[in-house]
């Protein structure tokens, strides 16, 4: 069975989608990703979709699911590199991907993840590990 590779980079996971997804592949990605978050207690997930030329309502739903599921597991998902044509099509279609945070590229996405973690560390000192 074909699978999308998930790379671990420290506290974060990086997924680069290079092929147009069909349903089974997308569903596999969803479960693989959630399992990997759990395994490494990852704090953030970057999904690079710069090579994706189409997102329909099904794919949109998968992205939304991943964002919400990872949030429950205390990991922030950032979708990066959406093509302009894909963004316009999603808006026309009526999908705004609520709950999904996006960034222009992997670099910006990484910055965003770091700043989010930094903020949450400051806001919730009771969960903070002082020896870090």
């Amino acid at each position: 069975m074909e699978r999308i590779p998930i790379l671990k980079m420290g506290q974060y996971l990086l997924v680069t989608i290079q092929v147009d997804l069909y349903d089974q592949l997308a569903e596999n990605l969803e479960s693989d990703l959630i399992n990997t978050i759990s395994k490494h207690s990852s704090k953030g997930v970057l999904i690079d979709i710069s090579a994706v030329s189409i997102i329909d309502s099904f794919m949109g739903r998968i992205l939304g699911n991943i964002a919400v599921m990872s949030k429950i597991m205390d990991a922030q998902t950032v979708v990066v590199g959406m093509q302009p044509a894909v963004a316009i099509t999603l808006v026309e279609l009526g999908l705004s991907l609520n709950g999904v945070i996006s960034a222009l590229n992997v670099e910006r996405g990484m910055e965003l993840l770091r700043s989010k973690m930094h903020n949450s560390d400051n806001e919730e000192p009771e969960y903070d590990d002082d020896n870090e």
């Binding site: 963004a87 808006v91 705004s96 945070i101 222009l104 996405g109």
Partner: peptide, 8 residues
């Protein structure tokens, strides 16, 4: 909305 989807 489209701008936000792009991450801006």
């Amino acid at each position: 909305s489209a701008t936000r989807l792009m991450g801006a």
